[in-house]
Design a protein around this nucleic acid. Structure first.
Lengths: 243, 243
DNA sequence: AATGGTAAAACTGTATACATTTTTGACTAT
DNA sequence: ATAGTCAAAAATGTATACAGTTTTACCATT
């Protein structure tokens, strides 16, 4: 079957391999050979190698000295550290946005996103939850964009792609847990506070809030690891965490 | 002619292409074709493509929608932003190191580095200057390592590879300028203060100092741009700065 | 002179071949 | 059984061929 947008087998390789790894198709530390994966994805090695090199930059695979690819493994500490890095960068973004000021239209956009999130609070159901994850991601990328710093946008984006460091990492699959739902309320309170701080040019406050906001993810991670194993089953990337 | 260390044409492609770009062999925004570059480096397109993909992650080249490679161009603001990101990440590293504590042996290592830097203060000559750059880099990578956070080590390393964001970007070629030499003294004072704060577990102070320390680079950048054009001639990567 | 169209040239994306290196696994000696 | 050796199998690194796409350059038209 030929893809109508025929080009970009590299992209196919990238997204499909990423899904496989985050979905737990390999055990952490497992070696993956190019021919094996190429056959599984039904493409040749050339675009696959390009995708693997990208995934190495994302921290999902690494090259052994011999050249073989190996799926990365992470400790809980690594995840915690990654979340702290994200919080720090988002803090810098919020501070910079507050210092430099944000255009009216960007403020309006954000207010709309947050209002839509408000409307979602207390509602349940998978559709609402999916929308929550989407709007949440939108707020976080707004924060980066509001800084106006190209490199900051890029680096925030990069650290969010690290397994389990993104803003919604620990939400998927937990929509029915009361304690997680409570954390959504607190998160939304943070969102508005960050927005107001940026709007009011309160740079220091914006930074501190964004940092603290990221630490909710750390708390959710701890809850998840302390809770029942079944709750962990569907969290993408959690299979890469060892020990 | 066969290379004795035959492997790693990719690495050769990476380092040589990086040198070419930072050395100003291309104008910012210039399009570079793979066959052209492959012929120039006397390798095939396969390892070259891998190297270019890496350089894209480093922010030296980017892919156009059509697939062609294009040398990136930067504004002064981009450089300033990159320096601020580096300072923020190094600040997080210093804070984390202070909070978690650093082993005796790492403290000793750092003290030795700083003592050797002390001995260099006031001395001149190209050899001493080269040594300064080396020891300076050593201190900065110590700071990242002292945090114990793998992802932080990786991200600091990455942002240092951005053109003109590394700790020694604006030093090369300026060894004879009195004002630059004075900034070395201040930098060294910062180094010791950061070290002492980490050793004394003064986390907040360590973070603030590391942030401020990075801003010396911003100051040097401003001096450089305000000064005579000849002073800018030999600064690697400065050819990528536009307007 | 400026614009638009078209064919040739050049380039990118991908597959594949092949040389070299690494891994595997069986076999031998201790 | 354990360790060591060595040949076969498999994997990686690199070059190259080729299809499809983009760019270039030239020519005709306004």
């Amino acid at each position: 079957m030929k893809d109508s947008r025929s080009t970009n087998l590299s992209l196919k390789a990238l997204t499909e391999t990423r899904s496989l790894i985050l979905g737990g198709a390999f055990t952490p530390g497992e070696r993956v050979s190019e021919p094996f994966l190429a056959q599984r994805l039904e493409i040749s090695r050339t675009p696959l190698r390009e995708a693997l090199a990208t995934l190495a930059q994302e921290g999902l695979v690494e090259r052994q000295a011999s050249g073989r690819w190996q799926v990365c493994s992470y400790s809980i500490q690594d995840i915690t550290d990654a979340i702290e890095v994200r919080g720090t960068l988002e803090g810098l973004a919020a501070r910079t946005a507050a210092e430099r000021g944000v255009s009216q239209s960007m403020l309006i956009t954000c207010r709309q996103t947050l209002t839509r999130l408000d409307a979602l609070m207390g509602l349940s159901g998978p559709d609402n939850f999916e929308l929550y994850v989407h709007l949440n991601a939108e707020f976080h990328s707004w924060m980066a964009a509001a800084s106006g710093s190209q490199i900051l946008i890029r680096e925030v984006d990069r650290v969010c792609r690290m397994p389990l460091a993104s803003p919604s990492s620990f939400l998927t699959g937990q929509e029915d847990s009361a304690i997680f739902r409570k954390s959504l309320l607190i998160a939304q309170h943070h969102h508005w506070a960050i927005f107001e701080a940026v709007e009011a040019r309160e740079a220091s406050r914006a930074e501190a809030l964004a940092r603290e906001h990221a630490r909710l993810a750390r708390q959710n991670l701890n809850l998840l690891m302390a809770g029942d194993p079944p709750a962990r089953a569907n969290v993408p990337g959690l299979s890469l965490v060892k020990s």
